[in-house]
Design a protein around this nucleic acid. Structure first.
Lengths: 343, 343
DNA sequence: AGCCAAGATTTGATCGTTCAAGACCCCGCC
DNA sequence: GGCGGGGTCTTGAACGATCAAATCTTGGCT
């Protein structure tokens, strides 16, 4: 076929295509990036060759010139034992999906602690590997947002800036309080006079948030909600112990800060239970809850991921219209009939 | 402070550092990549300035010149409902960790099916975004390895090439059969005369593998192992039904293809159980199994990830010594006392 | 005919690095 | 004293794209 210069089986480039077509490299580039600048006739001619050659613009060449890597960093946390990590898992997946749809890619990083995470992010940002990042698992005294913001590293946080007087980066989060409030009201309307709560230690912002929703839900029923709840670590065993305690105090329905606790609580309350939904509501709608038929509160992680991406891309585009975006998404209650224990 | 040319607050480059130092850019480059070529004296001088400026070589510039992106693609699957997806989760995490330790990064991709996955991988490979990939969830009639291999895309598979007469890419996998064999023998030695099996449909390579280990374990006890097992879909409910069936046939101990099934089976066998390990063994050692105190077979995913990375890097380096690597790692049995149901 | 503007295409520089030679210096050796 | 050679450093080109500006065409208007 080709005579001229001994065409190697190399992957085509703008230059090689241009030579082959007898046009300038810029014309080929324009066909792809600014088609309206090119006469329809030549545009078609160029497009044809592009298609036939299977040409794909070098992401690296492009990145060098535009100084945009089209990739976003995400720190992956060590597995941990929780039953609810599936939530984060789904978040990551939707993030990858959303990013990909916009031509971006998610790059995973790992770090032993926040300081290392921030340092690594800065390095990757400075060497052009990433354009921005999405933070997860925010907590009290979390310095990451403000450090990254001061470095000018485009950042969106999945999780509110707990305890900070003023947010330093835009964030998206799930309204845990709204979820537990809804669950509490549901149980009350289902005929229970009291609804107890199994809580995490107060060091957790997420835990505080979820507890506050329940408290609002029972505010008109008691002056001393502290007597209606038990605090314990996040495990099935402790959840069961806490539930036993509350049950002995006469509570017939419970809301729990997480599904591990709810699972434990369910093991206590299933005794004498007569079918239908167990009056226990967990949080996170984990796979276990789904497969055992436990009621739970489901986080709209898909929305959260989409919003996080969308806000981050806005930052990258430089659309600085107005103040930081802060988005609180409502979770939804999933009531289920007990499956496993009913057998 | 500098007078000369109005130094902007730009990030430093090889060129800018070279100018500042009064040496050539290549010398600076050599200090970083081939220190032995540079006289110790100047080397120190250059290093000092590098450190002070916080200079970091542009990953993009380097990638363009060397045509190595230092990143590895990994397809993230849709969440799915399984209780065992935590295994993949841990695998991904260890992969990211291992890659990062070697200067590589993991890029997430998503795809609705294998064909799209392969196409996307090819595109990313051709445009220089990735250097290689790690496949997961291999299955019968999986065409991905052979297509990728024929395209010259460096690939390592986590999961055997089920059904293929000849592997086309190196792989790492967990020896499921060894795990179920071990579990079966353990139960027999614990005093049970028979050990049943709850199996997945035979379309699954992983399921076949796990079943075969159990069959080997009971081979000397029965001529018709088909009567000792039940096949069903992977859910807690179906696991419970299958266990009830086997129990009614007189089986006192079971091995299950996965933890969902085992969880269902446990709900049946816990009745009349008197403490100590329940004679049910699941597979994957999922968080639920751990928190409920179910015995299970644990996959050495950390090893698997490390090996996968190691083999892939070898491919990238071009060390083609000998045939494709094929690595089968033994899982380990975790026997636990029942926790939750014992309360 | 002459001239300006819009349309279409080309030219040259640039992003930041590494590769492949070339230049220079100093020494020892015949 | 010229020559080879190792050690040190510099020069110029390449990687593959985009940006900025120059050039060539065309056509309409006076």
């Amino acid at each position: 076929m080709g005579a001229a210069k001994g065409s190697k089986r190399d992957t085509p480039t703008l230059m090689s295509l241009a030579r082959e077509l007898g046009v300038s490299h810029q014309t080929v580039s324009n066909v792809l990036n600014n088609p309206e600048l090119v006469k329809p006739e030549t545009r078609e001619r160029v497009l044809k060759v592009i298609r036939e050659s299977g040409y794909r613009p070098s992401a690296v060449g492009r990145a060098l010139r535009t100084s945009r890597s089209m990739s976003i960093a995400l720190r992956l946390r060590p597995s941990g034992d929780g039953v609810s990590r599936e939530v984060m898992d789904r978040f990551v997946h939707h993030l990858a999906e959303g990013a990909q749809a916009k031509g971006y890619r998610i790059q995973l990083i790992t770090a032993p602690d926040d300081v290392d995470e921030v340092r690594l992010l800065q390095e990757l940002f400075r060497d052009g590997s990433i354009d921005g990042t999405i933070l997860t698992d925010t907590h009290f005294d979390d310095l990451r947002p403000q450090v990254l913001a001061s470095e000018g590293l485009p950042t969106v946080s999945f999780g509110r800036p707990w305890g900070a007087s003023q947010p330093t980066v835009p964030w998206v989060d799930i309204d845990g309080a709204a979820g537990t409030y809804q669950a509490t009201r549901y149980l009350l309307e289902a005929g229970h006079d009291t609804v107890g709560f199994i809580s995490w230690p107060t060091s957790s912002g997420v835990g505080e948030d979820r507890r506050s929703g329940w408290m609002r839900g029972v505010a008109d029923l008691t002056d001393d909600p502290a007597k209606w709840m038990v605090t314990c670590q996040d495990s099935v065993r402790e959840g069961a112990a806490a539930a036993a305690e509350l049950r002995s105090r006469g509570f017939t329905a419970l809301v729990c800060a997480g599904d591990s606790l709810a699972l434990g609580a369910a093991s206590v309350f299933r005794v004498d239970h007569e079918g239908g939904p167990l009056p226990i509501v967990g949080f996170d709608d984990s796979p276990v809850a789904r497969s055992l038929g436990l009621s739970s509160i489901s986080q709209p992680v898909e929305d959260a991921a989409a919003q996080a991406i969308s806000i981050l891309l806005k930052l990258l585009r430089g659309d600085h219209d107005g103040p930081l975006e802060q988005l609180l998404l409502p979770p939804s209650l999933r009531i289920r009939d007990l499956e496993l224990f009913a057998l």
